[in-house]
Design a protein around this nucleic acid. Structure first.
Lengths: 159, 159
DNA sequence: AACTCCAATCGTAATAATTACTATTTAAGA
DNA sequence: TCTTAAATAGTAATTATTACGATTGGAGTT
């Protein structure tokens, strides 16, 4: 859970963007962003739906997906966790990267100036202009590693 | 198109892996890999299906997807192009990274020792053990940039 | 070469995430 | 308060991917 103050700051920023862009600042949109901004676990659309429903019981699937696209297009949230069957979302707008556990799909944020300021190879400049970098470190998280060890220890165990 | 020699080398490597792993080296598998290894454009499953069908007309959707998973699990190919509606594949096994055009979805390979040898931040070591790095530079490719300029030039053009 | 066996394939059906549609509701400006 | 176009709810449609059951064929053996 992120600090409430930070969450509300992000919600307020979004309301400002709505005004500027001439889109409506609805209850649903606000609650979806509030939910996402308060979470550190990069939830998927279904998870967000379930949680927001506790506060806005009639909210629909369509609204969730439409809003997530809107927020993404406005640069308020980002899509993370590549190559999976479902999209995961992130309301952390500070420049950062991700660690992804290939076992349990846990996603963690981390910061690295070195990765941010990476010089673009000439090879790439010739392909086009670079506007963003997406870095994902993949591996096994601590929890899964521990679980794996326990399971190994049980080899040959009695039934 | 990649050089034929290189393609056949990769196919031969795969046949060797099949023997070692005790899986059958079928005509379908060979042709799917041959198609992918010969391409530089990181095709999706449907594109591969269409192309392989010209040589193996009865090949099924199931076989395409099953084989792509098999090849991926064997480390012969990789899944690239994150956050899209469909998976894209790459038979280039040399260590490399990707440039992705957010406009037309073109994907290009590039090489960078610096990115390969990137030091893992301590923050991440505490989350788990890193086994791989996925880097994607995102931007607009030359072709799309030119197209955008032309379109801009037409502003106010007569009907 | 013929035989055998089980993995692999084909054709199609099922699944699951995401997007689209339409009647109804609501934010926000007059 | 009144008005209006944008947004929502509920549901249907779409699309990529996976699963299933009957049939085929790779590869080892005789």
């Amino acid at each position: 859970m992120r600090p409430k103050q930070q969450v509300e700051k992000r919600v307020a920023d979004f309301l400002e963007i709505c005004r500027r862009q001439g889109v409506k600042a609805t209850h649903q949109r606000t609650e979806i962003l509030r939910e996402l901004a308060g979470s550190e676990e990069h939830p998927d659309a279904e998870t967000i739906l379930t949680r927001v429903r506790q506060r806005v019981p009639t909210i629909s699937v369509d609204t969730i997906y439409r809003t997530l696209r809107l927020l993404e297009d406005s640069g308020v949230i980002a899509r993370v966790g590549s190559m999976r069957d479902r999209a995961r979302f992130d309301a952390n707008t500070d420049r950062h990267h991700h660690f992804v556990c290939t076992e349990c799909e846990m996603i963690g944020d981390f910061y690295s100036d070195a990765m941010d300021q990476f010089p673009v190879p000439q090879e790439v400049s010739e392909m086009g202009s670079v506007e963003g970098v997406y870095v994902e470190l993949r591996g096994i998280c601590r929890k899964c590693k521990q679980k794996a060890m326990k399971t190994e220890g049980r080899t040959g165990e009695k039934p």
